[in-house]
Design a binder for these strands. Structure first.
Lengths: 355, 355
DNA sequence: CTGTTAGCGCATTCAA
DNA sequence: TTGAATGCGCTAACAG
């Protein structure tokens, strides 16, 4: 990649042929109509005092008749060129989980007069830096991101310029940044311990993609609980698939066909849970089942899950951004969102009699 | 509301105390270092020719060493003050349907160097205008919206200024604007006709909220098909609830408890479908069931649905925006997205023998 | 091939 | 209480 390419801004494929049949009124236009200077209009619009009631009324009348609207761009250019927007960068826009996170972010940002730009990397680690750079060129005020690239070190310069970066769901690598994550390790370990207390020993773990931080954490928790119970080798029941490999559904069918099939199963994320449901069909009593992430209809189907509020993830992350924007000082924070096990039946099944 | 309030921009609660420890390099900075004028740097950055290879290399080296990044804000201020952002305004951010639409929009916009700002009105018609005005003050380039207010006439002035407005899922009122909608009427009528051919006559329709354009269209289609079959009064089986009223699940339970219960049911949207599933429990063979909107696990549960691609809705809407941005001429368009009935079993149940 | 001038819309500094 | 000058970062239009 040449530095030329580095410098290229977002491809400006749209010509600015917006030949506006009419143009927007400016402070000067309003001032002309009201017979005052643009600065006086500015004072009225900003309500920054020192304007006589008389002038004020004249200006407001003129502003209304011209349909004047302040130009935030120009306003912000004046003080250091920032917008009122914060970016949220996700890998896969179609995952309902991130949508709920985005909803939490949007709500919190809106409370503080900030808007959310949603951007996607299409789960392509290589595109993360490009997307981020593009957003920074648009002068977003802060970055919220679910890191996907192996390394976020490229953001170090930006951080020094004062742009807050908050990572969601996974911590950043090679970058000092705040993050908001789940207690995946402990939550999974605790769920598995429950299964063990119910008598299970052959407990499977299904999840994909294997490489994700969260999935690795959950795998660690799963192994930890099994180790505590004396099960030292769980590898026969671990199915962490990679993109292109078998689906969760296929993995479960495969597990069920074993000569010594598992008596319980943990799904590492919502996607894997759906695979389990599909594989089990109507035979939910065939084995105990706990999924990580709540999902639509899990209640109706009686499926126990490790749940938490995705919107809370977003809300907390947005709060961190706002705190940083108001005061850059302070060490990076790592916030952990609480999870809790919802008992709906599937996770409470005991080991079948004949085992 | 005083005009003062009208003029107030988004509450600027954040102080710009971003005391940047270091500041961003500008064209002039790069020029100084490279020993050329800022205009020459601009030419290099824009790759607009007329720069000797020698100068070019010097400039690129300087730009890189200063970590120069072009300021799109200033650039755009120069040509009429617009950003590279397009707003998508939704009522309820947590509805997975709109999320998929948003994904389609984001993808299409990104292909053209535009970014998507996602904004929510929290299903409050009164907040629509405020949210829109705020976005316009930030100079978004176009508006994509799921209209919720009773009237979009307040956008007329903006339209004349050349800002494209594209409505999604429902047409605008009192405003000339493009729209992308579903063929709700015909799709529902056709689904009901199928049930009638299978012998059904007592067919219920469950949906909420009642007031929505799409839901009214679907109701019309439902009634039309019944009328064709000689069922002139379907009111006993129509359950269009309003916010605060019974849930879809409750409506279905109520229907099932009738002395002459329906033998088939149409759910007017994905939310109503979930209610039906919950109410039916495991007794999916109790009546025929077709839902409008596909939903997660509908395949696993064997539920027939009227399906379409939500991302396609977004994609087409974004394409309209881009077309308008490039050429404002042409009459408003109304695009209809195709729907198709997916047969999964639940919609193919015949009328029970004893009826 | 390169530089100068000017101005986008606004708000800060300083004067009146 | 009001206004004039200035500059934010960038790029058209016009020199040279």
């Amino acid at each position: 990649m040449t530095s030329q390419t580095e410098l290229q801004p977002a491809p400006e494929r749209l010509q600015v042929t917006t030949l506006q049949p009419q143009s927007r009124a400016t402070l000067a236009d309003v001032g002309r109509l009201a017979g005052v200077s643009s600065k006086t209009v500015s004072r009225v619009v900003l309500d920054s005092g020192n304007v006589s009631k008389d002038t004020r009324d004249k200006v407001l009348a003129a502003a209304r008749s011209l349909r004047f609207r302040p130009n935030h761009l120009a306003r912000n250019l004046r003080h250091g060129s920032v917008t009122n927007t914060v970016a949220f960068i996700i890998g896969d826009l179609t995952n309902p989980f991130y949508f709920l996170v985005a909803a939490g972010i949007e709500r919190e940002l809106a409370r503080h007069g900030l808007m959310m730009i949603l951007a996607a990397t299409d789960d392509d680690p290589a595109s993360e830096e490009r997307v981020v750079q593009n957003l920074l060129d648009q002068r977003v005020r802060a970055l919220l991101m679910v890191p996907i690239a192996a390394d976020q070190g490229y953001l170090e310069g930006e951080r020094q310029l004062g742009t807050p970066v908050v990572c969601i769901d996974r911590p950043a690598r090679n970058l000092i940044a705040d993050s908001v994550v789940l207690g995946s390790f402990e939550a999974t370990a605790e769920a598995v311990r429950g299964l063990i207390r119910a008598g299970h020993r052959r407990i499977a773990f299904v999840c994909s993609p294997a490489a994700l931080y969260t999935h690795q954490e959950r795998l660690r928790g799963y192994r930890q609980a099994l180790r505590e119970a004396g099960v030292l080798d769980s590898s026969p029941w671990e199915r962490l698939e990679n993109p292109g490999g078998p689906t969760a559904e296929e993995s479960v069918r495969d597990l069920l066909a074993m000569s010594e099939p598992p008596t319980a199963i943990i799904a590492g994320n919502n996607h894997a849970s759906l695979g389990v449901v599909r594989a089990l069909g109507n035979h939910f009593d065939r084995l105990a089942f706990i999924g990580f992430d709540d999902f639509e209809l899990a209640d109706a189907l009686g499926i126990s899950v490790i749940a938490y509020d995705p919107a809370e993830l977003g809300r907390r992350a947005a709060q961190l951004v706002i705190a940083r924007l108001n005061d850059l000082i302070g060490p990076p924070q790592q916030i952990e969102i609480a999870t809790h096990l919802i008992h709906r039946g599937s996770g409470e099944l005991l080991v079948p009699r004949d085992q």
